[in-house]
Amino acid sequence: MSGSTEGSPGGSASGDAAESDTDTADTMRERAGENRAKLWLLLRADRLVVVAVLTLAIFVVFVAVAVGLSPSLAEKVGASDPIETLFASMITAIVTGATLVVTIGQLVLTGENGPLGDQQERMDATLAVRDDIAALTGAPTPTDPAAFLDAILGAAAERAEELRDSVNDRGAGGDRSDRAALREDVDDLAEGVIENATAVRGQLDGAEFGSFDVVFAALNFDYGPKMAGVERLVADHDEALTDDERDRLGELTESLSLFGPAREHVKTLYFQWALIDLSRLILYAAVPALLVAGLALSVVDAGTFPGRTLGVDHVTLVVAGAFAVTLLPFSLFVSYLLRVLTLAKRTLAIGPLVLRDSG
């Protein structure tokens, strides 16, 4: 964990280690250190595409293992009845899983229910934050989630530019070494904020909530280390800063700090959206899965699908396909949960706290 530093023998933390805490990559993929294919599978890929890939993989692995076993599946079916055992168990699992999904959906919706007083408190808190953002941006707060985040990022970039201009204008002539060092650090900080905010705003442009594009773009603005960078700059250049520059640093910190709860709010809404979609899709998939399991249980036996293709018994292909289809509800669950858990892990901390290696 990059946020952890050990004290020196004298008891003080290393300055280089503290600096590395804020010197992290901007994009989530670079910070995570994961390869592109893995990150695509966990986050970016359409969840139904992941389900299709997982279903195909189950089918292929089932056939490969069944063909490799001796005796073959067809001979096993003739000698006993493993199909009845398999699909009877699958029917029980599907019904139990669908019931569990309904329970999850109820838990998600529980947060939306409550007495009138609680709903009024939620509304007051929401309006208070919207007022803060409107005061920061000088314009009405957007209602679209992508535009909502874009407005905060625009304000952060504007505050960073104003800070850089203020420091450079004041130090135009006859600079002392401390002012030169201040200008250099402010330039680095402002450049990081502006470039990162501009890139993320481009990703938010045209993004629609519910497609994960908005949340994924928000992950690419690493506001925490930038807030820590402001704190470090104030500590390193306390005597060189003017009152006006301190005010501008405070405004920049305010804009960065507002992005944190705004991103968490959008992420929470996405979690609820995704879990409701998951519940609905699993209930939809449970019906054909139960039908296929019932047909396999009632119809398929050693003599139902005679013959072989490419050395593979037809009954093996049928049983493998039926098994993959009956696992559709579980495949949907795995697909959505991979994204939700990965997203939750990448956004555990709020504020300037780094929970992973910067490299």
Rank of each mutant, 00 (worst) to 15 (best):
K38Y: 05
L54K: 03
T55M: 01
L56W: 12
T24Q: 01
A13L: 05
L42Y: 03
E6F: 06
A25Y: 01
E34V: 13
A37W: 12
S12C: 02
S4R: 14
R44M: 05
L42Q: 06
V50T: 02
S4M: 12
D46V: 15
L56D: 08
R31N: 02
T24L: 06
V49I: 07
A18H: 12
V51W: 01
A45Y: 01
S8P: 12
T55F: 01
G11P: 08
G7C: 08
V51Q: 00
T5G: 14
V50C: 05
D21N: 07
D16A: 03
T22K: 08
L39A: 09
D26F: 08
A37R: 09
T55W: 00
D16Y: 07
D16T: 00
E30G: 08
G33S: 09
T55C: 00
G10S: 02
V53L: 06
W40K: 06
G33T: 02
A18S: 15
S12L: 04
G10I: 03
N35Q: 04
E6I: 05
L41G: 02
T27P: 02
A32R: 02
D21A: 09
R29C: 03
R36Q: 09
R36D: 07
L43T: 00
V53S: 03
A13N: 14
G11C: 01
S8R: 14
A57D: 10
M28W: 08
E30F: 05
V49K: 11
D23C: 00
D46N: 11
A57T: 10
L48R: 13
T24V: 07
E34S: 10
T22N: 09
G7K: 15
L56I: 01
A37E: 10
A37F: 07
T5W: 13
S2Q: 14
W40D: 02
G10A: 11
A18P: 06
D16F: 04
G15D: 03
E30W: 00
D16V: 00
S8I: 02
E6V: 04
T5A: 15
A13W: 13
A13C: 14
E34Y: 06
